[in-house]
Structure formats: C-alpha cells, structure tokens
Design a protein around this nucleic acid. Structure first.
Lengths: 123, 123
DNA sequence: GCAGAATGTAAAAAAAATGTAAATTCGCGA
DNA sequence: TCGCGAATTTACATTTTTTTTACATTCTGC
C-alpha cells in the first residue's frame, strides 16, 4: 500500500503528461516542466498511487517525515505549485479529497455529445 | 547511462560550436578557444550527454573521483570558466538544473515569425 | 444557513544551492 | 628547484527553493 520509489525507472505516460520517476523534469503536452526535488517527490508519490487517495498524513510522513502532531501548510503550497506547473491540467490531475488528502487521476479525454451519445447529435 | 569518453574521436558540431573529443581546443563561431584538461573533460561529459541532465554527483565522481560526502565548489568554478569561454553562448549551452546538476543543450536557432510561421509574415 | 474545520493563496522569512572574485595550493616542464 | 598556469579553496553574493504566516475561501455536519 502506498508504493514508494520502488517503482523507479518506470515512467508514467498518458494523453498529456509524461513523468519519469528517475528524472526531475516532466512533459505536459510538448512543454518541458522542471520540478524541484520536493515537487518531484510529491508528484511521484501521487502518480505511483494513481486513482487512489493518498492521505495528508501519509504525504507529510513520507516526504517530510512529519508526525501527525505537526501543523503546517507546506503540503498545500507544494500541491498548488505542482498544479500550476501542470497547467492547464492541474486540477484535472490532482484532485482534493476534502478532509482526507489528494488523488492523482489519469487523464481521460473529456466526453462530448458526439462521442458519448452520437444519437443525440444531429437529430 | 551517462556515456563517458567512449564516444571519443567523434566531434560535436552545431551552428556555433565545434568540439572534438580528441582535441583540447574547440571553436565558438570562428574563434578558437583553448580548454584546459579539466574544462575539456567537463565539456566532453556534458556534450556526450547533450540534452540530458548530468547530476553533480556524477560529474564530481567521473571527473574528480569525489564521493558524495565531499563538499567543494570546484565544479561550479569550472562551469563558470567554461561558460566564459563559450561566450556569448555560455548560458545557452550550459544550463543549470537547480538541485540536480547541469545540462548541455544543442544550439537551436531562435524562432522568429519568418521561420516559424512563414504564412503569417509578408501578407 | 451557520459555525467550525479544512484547504487555498499571496507574500514574507528562512534555508539551501549556485555564482563569483580573489587568494592559495598544486603540478609539471624548463 | 623555480616559475607559471591550472586547479582548488575561501568567503561572500546572489538566486532559488522551501517553509511559515496570515488571511481568504470552501466544505460539511448540524
């Protein structure tokens, strides 16, 4: 549960994002983004658990070594900067689970009427 | 990963730089520059991995034989002198990846409207 | 809808890494 | 051994990242 850098060497790839665990740079569409160490660790941990909620506790403990007693906003600030670098998909990729933590979601092509329910279009 | 002098004998060449692995002098446009031994090794290692980030660790280990525990500014000083000799392209060729290392980037002609989108010019 | 708790955000402060000039040391050829 | 250029260290300056602070905003249960 909550895989760590074990999955290193492997890269995550989808429609808009290319992320390599061993590399501090990533690609959003054709744009290279350079992640700082903490940003990279954070995104790595989230991506490794794509589709699953990773609680704040875990993030703070794994990346910062903080215990449950520590009160800080540093996680939120880092999430924010990550989302910014993932523009314009920041909120699409990184979802906030209120009261729990965050979840990285694989990109899925947004449905439109045409592809979703073709019979409703061009009637 | 992180090729060494194996690729010797071959020369690197682009719009502004000619660098021969077997030669301690290089050319920046039509100007000859003379590299010292360490400068040459450093540039060679970076050029061999053009486009890829080479971590400080690796540079310090491959060129100086230093371990991760050694604290020194000598790498930075060499980078600085290299950049100076590559004037006015020093910062263009040698990029700093904060917290990680350096990256040599092939020279790319800056785009202008003419070359990028010719159909938008001279309307 | 409200109160209280959790998260978002901008800006300042602190910490860490890199840049730089100048001094010092090293090493090799004469 | 001496002299000289190369390499390294030193001592700050500067830049970048990370954390904190101080509020603003959003969410949830009642």
């Amino acid at each position: 549960m909550f895989q760590s850098a074990a999955a290193a060497g492997n890269a995550y790839r989808d429609e808009h994002l290319l992320f390599d665990h061993g590399n501090t740079s990533a690609y959003v569409d054709l744009r290279e983004i350079i992640l700082t160490k903490k940003e990279h660790e954070l995104l790595a941990l989230l991506v490794e658990n794509a589709g699953e909620i990773v609680p704040r506790d875990i993030l703070l403990e794994r990346i910062w070594g903080y215990g449950k007693d520590i009160r800080t906003r540093t996680l939120d600030v880092h999430i924010r900067r990550l989302r910014k670098k993932l523009f314009p998909y920041g909120d699409t990729y990184i979802e906030t689970i209120f009261g729990v933590g965050y979840r990285f979601q694989r990109f899925r092509e947004p449905r439109n009427y045409m592809t979703f329910m073709p019979e409703l279009v061009a009637v």
